[in-house]
């Protein structure tokens, strides 16, 4: 564990808590893509099956359980409890165009051709693009609430910090996982446009609005 990894994990945790708090306090999931949230739940469910097969640390297990349970809770809140506020008309990204190619790629490019390893690879690839329905939704509505922007910034920062963690681990531990690094870079690149808007607008007290 290094400082980048720790701050990255905390940023990921913060993102999820921010999203849940926003929904709970406003009793609404307006502006949030349910499709992205389903993809994140799928990501965690397929990645953390190793909870049943290998133990790494208490920290590791607690975080995995937290991520799986909160992602399911988020999906539940969106599709059941606060369903009336879900903006499905703007959440029209075709997720099959992500899940099917990513599934195929996980079969073809993986560290080992075994069920758990393929599922892990699938989750890494899927996570890298899971935010696309959310970004697509924002581009359709042309705006994002400030709290949603904070959520996205924390969520995007997490993988960017993981890249620093991988650089650190490569130099000091000789650790290098090509699949995670490439997918992590793709994931971070997808957020760059948003990061720019966040820094130039939200941090100066303005809302994100996009030209039509």
């Amino acid at each position: 564990m290094n400082i980048f990894r720790l701050i990255g994990d905390m940023s990921h945790l913060l993102a999820i808590i921010l999203l849940l708090l926003k929904m709970w306090k406003t009793r609404s999931c307006a502006g949030i893509s349910g499709k992205s949230q389903i993809l994140f739940a799928l990501v965690f469910a397929s990645r953390y099956l190793d909870l049943f097969t290998s133990f790494v640390s208490v920290y590791n297990s607690v975080m995995k359980i937290f991520f799986i349970s909160t992602s399911l809770l988020t999906v539940y809140l969106m599709y059941f409890k606060f369903r009336a506020t879900y903006d499905s008309n703007h959440d029209t990204f075709r997720v099959e165009f992500l899940v099917i190619p990513v599934g195929g790629l996980a079969f073809l490019v993986n560290h080992e051709f075994s069920p758990l390893e393929i599922l892990w690879t699938f989750s890494i690839y899927l996570e890298s693009v899971a935010i696309l329905p959310q970004l697509f939704m924002m581009s359709k509505t042309g705006e994002a609430e400030t709290i949603t922007s904070h959520y996205l910034f924390a969520l995007g920062s997490y993988r960017a910090l993981y890249i620093l963690n991988w650089v650190y681990r490569y130099y000091f531990e000789g650790f290098f996982d090509l699949i995670a690094v490439v997918a992590g870079c793709v994931q971070t690149i997808l957020y760059c446009d948003f990061f720019y808007l966040y820094i130039t607008k939200v941090l100066k007290g303005k809302r994100i609005t996009l030209p039509a």
Binding site: R47, S54, V56, N60, F67, E112
Partner: peptide, 10 residues
Amino acid sequence: EEDIHKKDEL
């Protein structure tokens, strides 16, 4: 050799 099944990262 590192055990690739022991995923330390989240």
